[in-house]
Design a binder for these strands. Structure first.
Length: 461
RNA sequence: GUGGUUGUAGCUCAGUUGGUUAGAGCACUAGAUUGUGGUUCUAGGGGUCGCGGGUUCAAAUCCCGUCAUCCACCCCA
């Protein structure tokens, strides 16, 4: 059998793991700096917990878990009867009751409701775990990938939005990535839908609008027509989009939009929220990221109701590396109403890919080498002698390994140390055991000296 | 789900208009070197040419199908 792994999944080798852990650590430390606490939830959830939260396209991408045992037998039994394919399909769907998690936000909402009596609100949690999507893999798109989420739940304050912008900025500053942070607000989009007389089509409008840059107005118009938007509505929408098209500054865009949305309470509320974020952030240092108001930013997830964020890397062609927003009633479905939350999700796999493409890891100098010193020897007796030496070194915190196999070939042992980028090797032979003067070799310079264990400890510690 | 790309050694790839026993570099093993690696030199192991069918005296090469891959669309981290 030829060994392989499912498409869209990856193995991570030591060097990659060291680099990934560096990113995880950076993000975790920033999250904790802002008062977020860690939780974890299971890899699988009840299917009904997940369905209906991600939009039609999203729901299709949920990895369902095949039933086992009796349920599976029942499905198998159906195959021998004369049911139609459609019936077979719906019956099978009924028996599916578990799925792999699609994101971390919905399981978090479930967690909050389930543990509401133990939680002190506002609750700030972070969560770093893999998620799974039954997608077709391509550049920067995997079927298993990690999300690093930070969410505040139980607070309406816009300070949370401001801090999210700061977190984004701080994480990418530390990772030395230049980014564009796009901000929009679902209330503005709702307001526009209202004004153009299509309140019920908000999602369709935003999804179409999202493509404006890419495909141009004519194709957007076409798509809206297929969604049964009236031509009056389309004309009004075009007017609004055109009016801010050439404006550079967020402030100008927002004040122009304000005119259009005079008659929409919710629209004006959205403008006000975005203005607050921009005005507050203005007074804070932010260096790595450019903040931008982008009316066409939609984000497909159904549950967002207020601010929405998306971050793209400046110098690399890649989908968004970070996204999030405010959701006013995600917990409502699970039986806890009137609790608003806002959060952000970092896509570590794409961040890794971007950093790799920019050769940023080389400049950070991360390698997979964790062992400080290796003990090389010439035989059974020498190897036994190594065990005691290794204990002494480890007891003072020096990462030490003993070459495990007996071989007269010292060159093989050096080769091993060399490939593993171990910086020091101690050679133990008959002479060394007799005198207690061990040979310490610096693998980078090639220089070697004889010294006692205590001296070696002082040197390596 | 739709469209395209590419499948040859563990990895990266070459292989001419179809023509002997399918090659290179890196990696691996051994030796040059029985207490000194990262350099060099020598030798060696390793291939159902993705899989199945077809055309042909002859297929890695041409045709059909299929699977996998990567990329784009959709959507998303």
């Amino acid at each position: 059998m030829k060994p392989s792994i499912p498409k869209g999944t990856r193995d991570f080798s030591p060097t990659e793991m060291v680099r990934r852990n560096f990113i995880f650590k950076t993000i975790r430390e920033v999250f904790e700096k802002y008062g977020y606490q860690p939780i974890e939830t299971p890899a699988m959830e009840n299917l009904e917990t997940l369905t209906g939260k991600y939009g039609d396209e999203g729901d299709k991408l949920i990895f369902k878990i095949l039933p086992r045992g009796e349920k599976l037998t029942k499905i198998g039994g159906l195959l021998n009867t004369k049911v139609s394919f459609a019936d077979l399909f719906t019956k099978t769907t009924e028996y599916l009751d578990e799925a792999l998690r699609y994101d971390l936000t919905v399981p978090f909402a479930r967690y909050v409701v389930q543990h509401q009596n133990e939680i002190t609100f506002p609750f700030k949690r972070y969560q770093i775990q893999p998620v799974w999507r039954a997608d077709k893999p391509q550049k920067g798109r995997y079927r298993e990938f990690y999300q690093c989420d930070a969410d505040v739940i139980g607070s309406n304050s816009l300070l949370n939005e401001v801090e999210i912008v700061q977190i984004i900025d701080e994480v990418f500053r530390q990772l030395k990535l230049r980014t564009i942070v796009k901000i929009n607000n679902r209330k503005i989009l709702q307001g526009i839908a209202e004004i153009i007389g299509a309140s019920d089509k908000m999602i369709d409008i935003t999804i179409a609008l999202d493509k404006l840059d890419k495909i141009g107005w004519e194709l957007v118009e076409q798509e809206l027509k297929t969604k049964n938007l009236s031509s009056d509505s389309i004309i009004s929408l075009h007017e609004i989009a055109l009016s801010i098209k050439n404006e550079k500054f967020p402030e100008h865009k927002l004040s122009l939009l304000k005119n259009h949305l005079q008659d929409s309470g919710i629209g004006l509320k959205g403008i006000e929220e975005v203005e607050y974020i921009f005005n507050t952030v203005k007074n804070i240092r932010h260096e790595s990221s450019i903040l931008e108001f982008d009316l066409t930013l939609a984000r497909g997830l159904n549950y967002y109701t207020g601010a929405i964020f998306e971050v793209k890397a400046n110098d690399v062609q890649m989908g968004s590396i970070c996204g999030g927003g405010r959701y006013d009633d995600l917990t409502g479905i699970f039986g806890l109403s009137n609790v608003s939350g806002v959060g952000i999700s970092f896509g570590i796999d794409r961040i890794f890919d971007v950093m790799n493409e920019l050769n940023l890891f080389d400049s950070i100098g991360l390698t997979a080498s964790t062992t400080k010193v290796m003990l090389a020897h010439f035989g059974e007796e020498e190897r036994n002698y190594c065990i005691g030496i290794a204990s002494q070194l480890r007891s003072v915190g020096i990462n030490t390994e003993i070459y495990p196999d007996i071989t007269k070939k010292i060159s093989k042992q050096f080769d091993y140390a060399n490939k593993k980028q171990i910086p020091f090797v101690i050679v133990i032979g008959g002479d060394e055991i007799k005198t207690g003067e061990l040979t310490l070799k610096n693998m980078t310079s090639g220089e070697q000296t004889k010294m006692k264990v205590d001296e070696i400890i002082l040197k390596l510690k």
